[in-house]
Every structure is written in structure tokens, then in C-alpha cells.
């Protein structure tokens, strides 16, 4: 029983980590109407920035973490400037296709710059797990979960209640309408990418803390994708619920069902849940139901 509860808690915390990475998708979508396929690549770039500032340059964590976040924001801004600004006014389809291109472009660039070597990632959160009776909770996931919840509440408030957040929401509704209302589509998209990139870097810190870093870690982007769709692409608060549900389901499948069938069903369970929920609710749990007019 204790193990069962422990699996649920760990699963929920992993789910919150997925939710944090998925928040990158949602923030970019929420402020620009562009679905960013390259989110996993942003995570890995964030990871390499953190690795570079701590392990290569040798800064202390207190200095390197803020610096990494600033650098990650700059990378996001640069990507937006180089690839997306020029596409404002084109169809959203082209922008999405550019992010598909970015997915393999960034993957290749990371591989060219850093090579396939396995690198130690700095220990950002204490390695010692938290003991609750017989239960054992990884510290990085616990702190990460708290960060996720705080970020979700904060960003949800920002996008739904503040003036600038609502401006970006308008951009996500329709680029043309937003710009004719005097809202800067360019600024909104730039902000989205900076924020998305920073969130990815935080995700990388939680995910990789004390582990090893290779370019393959970007697969977390695809692990987080079902969470974003499950919650609905517009909902930031919903990510927490979706993340917890998917994380718990995955953890229970991996621990109880997989030994029985001798496979790794756990890795596809998020996708199966996502497909099932999308068939019932086509825009996820909390996504906007738009009314289309011709």
C-alpha cells in the first residue's frame, strides 16, 4: 500500500514536470496562435546553457541560474526574430511548419555544437530524497512540482486578468483582428518565445538536475505533448490537472501493468489517454471552444 501511494505521488510529481514543459507549448500558443513543435529542443538548449554556465565557465549556481534564464530568453528572442517575425501576416500554417523545421534544425545544431557525448548536469536541487515514513519522494521533482504550480497560477492570472495578458490572448484569437485593434502582434510573439524558452530552461533544470545531459533529453518535449493537448491548448491552469492525471496513469502503468505484460506500455499511455479524451472533448479538458464563421 505504501508503495502504491508512493507511486501515485511520484507519478503526480512527474506529471507536474510534464505540465511545466507543456506550459511552454501553451504559453507560445496562448500568445501567438503558433503551435511550437520544437519545444523539446528548447528544453535541451536550456539544459546546455545551464551546463555551459556552471560546468564550463564554472559560475556558482546563484549566478549561473539567473544568467542561464536570461540567455535562454535571448535564444528564444533570437529564434523569433530570425524565423517567425518575417511570417507575421502569412498563414499560421507556415509558422507551424517553420517550427517543424526548427525541430530538426535545432536538434542538428545541438548535435553539431556539443556532439553526442554524455555530460554530467549540475546538481541544482538536493539529491537526497524526502522521506515520509516509508515513502521516498525525489527532491528535484518535489521542488519542481511547487514551481510548476506557482508558475501555472501566476501565468494563468497574467493571461486572464492583466491588460497585457489579454492583449496576447487577442493575438491568439486572430492576428489580423489583433493588429487592427492596435495590438502589437510582433511584440506578443516575441514575448511568447522568450517566456516559452525560459520555462523550458526551468523544466530542463528540474528534469536533469544531478543526471546526465545528452541531446536525447529533448524527448521530454514529446512526453509533454499529450499533457498540453489533454488540458486544451489554451488552458494554463488545466495543465496541472492534466499533468497529474497523465503522470499518475503513466506511473501506475509502468509499475503495475508493464511487469505483467512485459512491455513498456507506460511510454504510450499518455498518448492513448490523450486520444481518448480528444474523441470525447475535441479541444481537451479546458480548451476554448471556438465558434467558426465563414
Amino acid at each position: 500500500m505504501v508503495y502504491f501511494i508512493n507511486d501515485i505521488i511520484t507519478g503526480a510529481l512527474i506529471g507536474l514536470l510534464y505540465a511545466l514543459v507543456a506550459m511552454g507549448f501553451v504559453v507560445i500558443y496562448r500568445a501567438s496562435k503558433v503551435f511550437n513543435f520544437a519545444q523539446g529542443e528548447l528544453v535541451i538548449i536550456g539544459g546546455f546553457i545551464v551546463w555551459f554556465t556552471t560546468m564550463q565557465v564554472g559560475l556558482s549556481l546563484w549566478l549561473s541560474i539567473p544568467l542561464s534564464l536570461v540567455l535562454a530568453g535571448l535564444v528564444g528572442y533570437a529564434i523569433e526574430r530570425i524565423f517567425l517575425t518575417k511570417l507575421i501576416g502569412e498563414s499560421v500554417f507556415s509558422m507551424v511548419m517553420v517550427t517543424v523545421g526548427l525541430l530538426i534544425l535545432l536538434r542538428g545544431l545541438v548535435l553539431l555544437l556539443f556532439g553526442p557525448a554524455v555530460r554530467p548536469f549540475p546538481i541544482i536541487f538536493p539529491l537526497k530524497p524526502l522521506f515520509l515514513g516509508d515513502m521516498l519522494i525525489p527532491m528535484n521533482l518535489l521542488i519542481g512540482g511547487i514551481i510548476t504550480v506557482v508558475a501555472a497560477v501566476g501565468l494563468s492570472w497574467f493571461f486572464n486578468r492583466t491588460r497585457s495578458g489579454l492583449r496576447m490572448t487577442a493575438v491568439a484569437e486572430d492576428h489580423v483582428v489583433a493588429s487592427s485593434m492596435g495590438i502589437s502582434v510582433k511584440g506578443s510573439i516575441a514575448f511568447a518565445w522568450i517566456l516559452g524558452s525560459i520555462l523550458s530552461t526551468i523544466g530542463a533544470m528540474i528534469f536533469l538536475s544531478g543526471k546526465s545531459l545528452t541531446f536525447l533529453a529533448s524527448d521530454i518535449g514529446f512526453a509533454a505533448l499529450p499533457v498540453a493537448l489533454f488540458a486544451g491548448l489554451e488552458s494554463i491552469g488545466g495543465l496541472i490537472l492534466a499533468g497529474v492525471i497523465i503522470g499518475v496513469a503513466q506511473s501506475l502503468t509502468t509499475n503495475y501493468l508493464d511487469p505483467m505484460i512485459g512491455g513498456s506500455l507506460g511510454s504510450v499511455v499518455p498518448y492513448i489517454i490523450m486520444l481518448a479524451i480528444l474523441l470525447v472533448r475535441p479541444t481537451g479538458l479546458f480548451g476554448w471552444r471556438t465558434i467558426e464563421r465563414v
Partner: peptide, 22 residues
């Protein structure tokens, strides 16, 4: 880089091609 350069180069160039064409 070893043998990964082909894969990496392919990704960089094709990704760049997609973005440039778009």
C-alpha cells in the same frame, strides 16, 4: 563528432531548408 555528423548535418540543412522556404 564521429558518425553523427551526417545525421546532424542532414537535420541542420533540411531544417534550414524548411524554414528558408517557408
Amino acid at each position: 563528432l564521429g558518425g553523427d555528423i551526417v545525421f546532424a548535418g542532414m537535420n541542420v540543412i533540411l531544417g534550414g531548408v524548411i524554414a528558408l522556404f517557408m
